[in-house]
Design a protein around this nucleic acid. Structure first.
Length: 365
DNA sequence: TAGGCGTGGCG
DNA sequence: TCGCCAAGCCT
């Protein structure tokens, strides 16, 4: 059947999006471009999985250097499986959400020992692995294995909520949105479709001031028709962030070593390295003093460090003392030369605390 | 199911 | 300056 030139070509929404993606996709280190994919190039499941875990609640810009570092240290998933967990934590330091690193290591071990070194190639098989939830299992299945899996992350939620003008607030409306994504996901190129939805959300359908004028889905979008796309997605009201107080103690020997210790395996900053601190409490009497130090020394106050976590704000009073090594102190943790601090699994809040006491601790050498 | 769990960039 | 929030997972 012929169409006259005045008719709009028959074109469904997934096709419109994929056509846009072919032309405007982002080039990312872990990604196979649509042209290369058409020529038969396949994404490496290890690369896709590693990038997806790093990208959980984390920006592309923050992930890129870590992605390269991990591939350099551990080129194959079996290399990562064989690595000491301390090395993995140290390499992850600064990226946040450290349970991801612990689960990354566990997942690599499971792939190596239970799956012969090859990732499961189905959504269900991937979903059973540590640190892989609804999003990541669908993403790896679609992108690395071309499975028709419905991928929904924060970007997709925004695009879908606008396309259909969904008024119900997140996270309650998630199942409704997931059903919409499932209905849209094509049998052909499901991985490109997922990446296209996310690219659209990241570059066009942005939280603020979306670029509707150049959006390939504009004609299908109810939020655009209503002239207020920023109204979506509707989200439940947030709770206020409490403040917690504490003190951190930086002990320095004449040899230039500082006292470090390891945090418990689970919970906040689990398995990461820290300087000795008091408990972080919600008391507001400002009671943090040298009396709470891990041992007696000539502690001098040297300022305050404020660090904002996801669910509370921490105000750490910093104390510093010159001291000599004794056996008693060594039961607290271990003494580490300052020039080795860069190799430790120190979360950002601890780097801030140490820098407050020793301004050049993390200076380039 | 709702809360715990990091960090850095951006408007 | 500061609130928002980014390719979520686990319990």
């Amino acid at each position: 059947m012929l169409q006259t030139s005045t008719q709009t070509p028959a074109r469904n929404l997934p096709d419109a999006l994929l056509t846009w993606y072919d032309r405007h996709h982002r080039d990312l280190p872990w990604r196979v471009s649509p042209a290369a994919a058409a020529a038969g190039k396949r994404a490496d499941p290890y690369h896709i999985w590693l990038s997806e875990v790093m990208l959980q609640q984390t920006t592309v810009q923050a992930v890129k250097p870590y992605f390269w570092k991990f591939l350099g240290l551990w080129p194959k998933v079996t290399d990562l499986a064989a690595a000491p967990v301390e090395d993995v934590m140290a390499a992850w330091a600064g990226l946040g959400y450290y349970a991801r690193a612990r689960n990354l290591k566990k997942c690599a071990e499971a792939v190596a020992t239970e799956h012969g070194g090859a990732f499961p190639d189905t959504e269900q098989g991937l979903r059973a692995l540590p640190g892989i939830g609804d999003y990541t299992s669908a993403a790896v299945a679609a992108i690395a294995f071309n499975r028709q899996a419905a991928v929904m992350d924060g970007n997709v939620e925004r695009v879908i909520s606008r396309l259909y003008a969904i008024d119900a607030p997140l996270p309650g409306s998630k199942s409704l949105m997931k059903a919409k994504v499932t209905a849209l996901t094509p049998a052909a190129r499901p991985g490109d479709f997922a990446q296209a939805m996310m690219d659209l959300g990241a570059t066009i359908c942005t939280p603020k001031r979306p670029a509707c004028a150049i959006c390939p889905l504009r004609d299908d979008c109810l939020a655009f028709a209503e002239h207020d796309p920023e109204r979506f997605p509707v989200k439940a009201a947030k709770k206020e962030k409490p403040v917690r107080l504490g003190a951190a103690f930086i002990a320095v020997t004449p040899e230039g070593e500082i006292l470090l210790r390891r945090r418990e395996e689970s919970g906040l900053l689990g398995g990461m390295t820290e300087v000795p601190t008091t408990a972080w409490t919600s008391r507001v009497d400002g009671g943090a003093t040298a009396a709470h130090a891990p041992f007696d020394a000539d502690w001098e106050p040297c300022g305050l460090v404020v660090h904002v976590f996801t669910h509370f704000e921490l105000r750490l009073s910093i104390f510093r003392a010159k001291t000599n090594r004794t056996d008693k102190q060594s039961t607290v943790g271990w003494w580490e030369p300052v020039e080795n601090l860069e190799r430790q699994a120190l979360p950002t809040v601890m780097k801030k605390a140490i820098s407050q006491a020793i301004p050049l601790a993390f200076a380039p050498r």
